[in-house]
Write a protein that binds this DNA or RNA. Structure first.
Length: 227
DNA sequence: GACCAGGCACATC
DNA sequence: GATGTGCATGGT
């Protein structure tokens, strides 16, 4: 597939998804800070469980960096319990909160002033933040262009034979960065639509024609390689 | 009861 | 550098 064909295919898939599902209105958070918290809590976890955890944090009046940091680990773990892995996520959340408060005064808008490449490196240096979480914070909280790749993205584009089975996170991300307009709304909607496709048709749907832009049937769950 | 979900760090070979 | 494992709840 040459460069033009790849770009055309990526756009074709995007428009087919948008036509099928409509805008997804991501990220489902009321503030940039809430998006950051959600990005960490949703690691390998269903969003419904994360929503419960965030509701608990809100009910406790703690949805701000200072209040969350002031909680002791046991209390925070209890609040985020529904999101699973609550002990490890307590540590990860606090690592991020310290980073945010100490380096940026607890203000996500200040994060968004940092050049994308630099910001990404800084986020990845925080223990508990990997590629997907970093890109989610950059794209959905800071509204800067960094395409979010996840396990669904891998499975869908592997099935479309647009990536190799051995493709790692950055190879997949490069596919989108090279062939799509570097626009935040496009990156935002594309990733959200891929997740929607994955959720909707992962195991429920029969395979369709593999040349159809919406090739719903996914290969079995397999890990996305991260560097 | 098994399997899955919007990962990540760390141990081991 | 690749591969395996622990982390944990809630829905289907």
């Amino acid at each position: 597939m040459n460069r033009l064909e790849t770009a055309e295919r990526l756009h074709q898939i995007y428009h087919a998804l948008l036509k099928q599902f409509g805008p997804q209105h991501w990220w489902p958070g009321e503030s940039p800070f809430e998006v950051c918290v959600g990005a960490i809590l949703t690691q390998n976890t269903n969003w419904q469980n994360v929503a419960k955890a965030i509701a608990n944090i809100k009910a406790a009046g703690c949805l701000n960096p200072q209040a969350l940091l002031a909680l002791d680990d046991a209390a925070l773990a209890q609040l985020i319990r529904p999101s699973g892995y609550f002990n490890i996520k307590t540590k990860r959340l606090k690592q991020f909160l310290r980073f945010l408060v100490e380096d940026y005064g607890g203000d996500v808008r200040a994060l968004a002033q940092v050049p994308v490449a630099v910001l990404r490196e800084k986020l990845l240096a925080v223990k508990g933040i990997g590629c997907e979480t970093a890109d989610s914070i950059i794209l959905y909280a800071c509204e800067l262009p960094s395409f979010v790749v996840d396990a669904y993205t891998y499975r869908i584009f592997l099935r479309h034979e647009m990536i190799e089975e051995t493709a790692d996170y950055h190879e997949i991300q490069d596919l989108f960065h090279r062939h799509l307009e570097k626009e935040v709304p496009l990156y935002n909607e594309y990733h959200a639509l891929l997740v929607r496709l994955g959720k909707e048709f992962c195991l429920k749907s029969k395979p369709r024609c593999e040349h159809c832009p919406l090739y719903f049937f996914l290969p079995p769950r397999s890990p996305l390689r991260t560097p």
